[in-house]
Amino acid sequence: MALMPKRVKHRKSQRGRIKGNATRGNRVVFGDFGLQAMQGGWIRAQTIEAGRIAAQQYIRGEGRLYVRMFPHKSITARPLETRMGKGKGEPAAWVAVVKPGAVLYELGGVTEEQAKLCMARLAHKMPIRVRFVRRRPA
């Protein structure tokens, strides 16, 4: 089941713009290795889930995977073959707004070689350019 908020104040949101780089959530905090976004973008709940499954199937209970993003934003769409007007469409998907530099997934309890292979599988699912990162020295 794809992620989505439990309660929201408003069902629909404006599109907004992704400006600048991530100044928070841009370092590996929970695990030892991570996958960092090099571009900004919207990542759908289904994509987050696809990434999680791809990584989980690879690590098979050896390490621990952390998902560092959450789809807080609803995206609306209009039904096919409808005329313009009649207001904004209905929510069709939930997305996580990602800024360049944000750490999307983290992995702990595995070796660096295993983590690299796992993150490579996960990176294939992502709609943006990503890179493998290690924990920064304290």
């Binding site: 089941m1 794809a2 992620l3 989505m4 908020p5 439990k6 309660r7 929201v8 104040k9 408003h10 069902r11 889930e49 989980q56 929510p91």
Partner: peptide, 18 residues
């Protein structure tokens, strides 16, 4: 297990509006 993770992620079709 994979089943536990799936159960944790399960929710309604749409979120409740406050």
């Amino acid at each position: 297990s994979e089943a536990d993770l799936a159960a944790a992620g399960a929710g309604g079709a749409e979120p409740e509006v406050i």
